[in-house]
Nucleic acid binder design. Structure first.
Lengths: 237, 237
DNA sequence: CGGCAGGCAATTGTCGACAATCGACCATTG
DNA sequence: CAATGGTCGATTGTCGACAATTGCCTGCCG
């Protein structure tokens, strides 16, 4: 297979050629590493929607066997980043603006309203310190006009709260939509007129958590998720 | 391994002993079959929360190799039915009533409001006929006091609408919460005072779809999902 | 010239074996 | 007797090979 010309494989090459050979990061399992590499490549657009992937091709590119790649692709499929057709391959998926508006954002609101409420009474001083350090990172990223880091810190903040809520199923659902949320964060982040408002908004969320008023917290979370999104388009309601 | 006594393996045996040897249904892939068998066993309580599973044990019980079992367990983990600890095994998870109320139900509302809206103008006569046949099945199940079938038809109805909405990410998120929704349907179905109202409510949803009023549809969907749930406990709002 | 059966290449699905890792038990030592 | 280090069983992580399936392409037949 490696000696014969194969247009499909060549197409995969073009998208994957710049991927780091995962030999360096052997800290986590390979499945996880492969999933991270592919997720990153899809998120930043290195692997465009419609790109066809094969298990063997990805495995060869990343210098591993098919088994971890196979599991990683299954995971990405669960995350909605790719779709696989039995015996025919896997394809990279896109996320439409309409689905973000009408599915991901409302789901996030439902999920995070609950998560913030549950997290509120559980937070220790160390937890607050951690959240505040993430906010500082956001401010620094905004200062440096580093949109990608800003989006990543934003995701980390929300995931931290969901994790600290201690609600297992909440976290599970969050993880299943997180890659897509991150995808639209990254896409939208470059459009912000003033990136410093992101850090400010999160600081306000931390304040709302400290205040202890559940209804105010609900309002703050809802407003934040919608506002964060309104940057590119006016919401329906 | 098979000749030596192993308490953990014996524990797995006790839970899995009644599982059908999957040799009969080789229509779908084995991964899918294994996932279905385990999901069913967890849903009906045959595998109780806290039950420990091992890839080799399940594979032996079902007469297959570890590869499909492994993938099935990963999928169930994404679905929130089990949790796996690296190098130490997999454990069956439960779903708390609180998380159902505060996570699954609100997420369902967000998701299905959008799905019903998008499905409405796309539905053909054949689609309506299919939905109505599902409603008739519900009525028949209620008549026969078959709570399990009633829950299954209920799930099928909602999945059908989400599928017909044509929204890929909507369907993907639905699939990721569907097993847990099914789990609480099954648990709650036995508590219904009058099971026939379930079929009636879905008939009303079909009517709302036919009527073409988006706002009325939103209200109907929201009320249905909450009402369906109110059967066991009064919702917060 | 068009449709169809059959082979062929590409890809995923499945399997058995081996390596890596974790936790517990046990012997050793101060 | 307590702390510590090593060893061992159990389990998952990874690999390479083989089987099954799909879609295409080709060549035959009407």
């Amino acid at each position: 297979m490696s000696t014969k010309y194969d247009p499909c494989y060549a197409a995969a090459m073009s998208g994957l050629s710049a991927l780091p050979a995962l030999s360096s990061a052997s800290l986590a399992s390979r499945r996880e590493t492969v999933a991270d590499v592919l997720r990153e490549a899809i998120t930043v657009g290195q692997l465009p929607a419609g790109q066809k992937l094969t298990e063997a091709g990805v495995a060869a590119q990343l210098g591993t066997s098919r088994a971890p790649v196979r599991e990683a692709l299954r995971q990405l499929e669960q995350e909605g980043l790719v779709i696989s057709y039995p015996y025919r391959g896997t394809e990279v998926l896109g996320v439409s603006q309409e689905e973000i508006e009408n599915v991901l954002v409302p789901v996030r609101v439902s999920l995070e309203k609950f998560a913030f409420r549950k997290a509120m009474p559980r937070l220790t001083d160390a937890d607050y310190a951690h959240l505040e350090s993430l906010v500082r990172n956001m401010a620094a990223a905004a200062e440096a006009a580093d949109a990608a880091s800003l989006a990543d810190e934003d995701i980390r903040f929300h995931e931290a709260v969901v994790t600290l809520s201690g609600q297992q199923h909440c976290l599970q659902i969050w993880r299943s939509i997180q890659p897509r949320v991150r995808s639209y964060f990254r896409r939208d982040a470059s459009h912000y007129a003033d990136a410093t408002v992101v850090a400010e908004q999160h600081r306000e969320l931390v304040d709302a958590l400290r205040a202890g008023d559940e209804q105010a917290l609900d309002r703050a979370v809802t407003a934040h998720i919608n506002t964060h999104f309104k940057a590119t388009k006016d919401p329906a309601e």
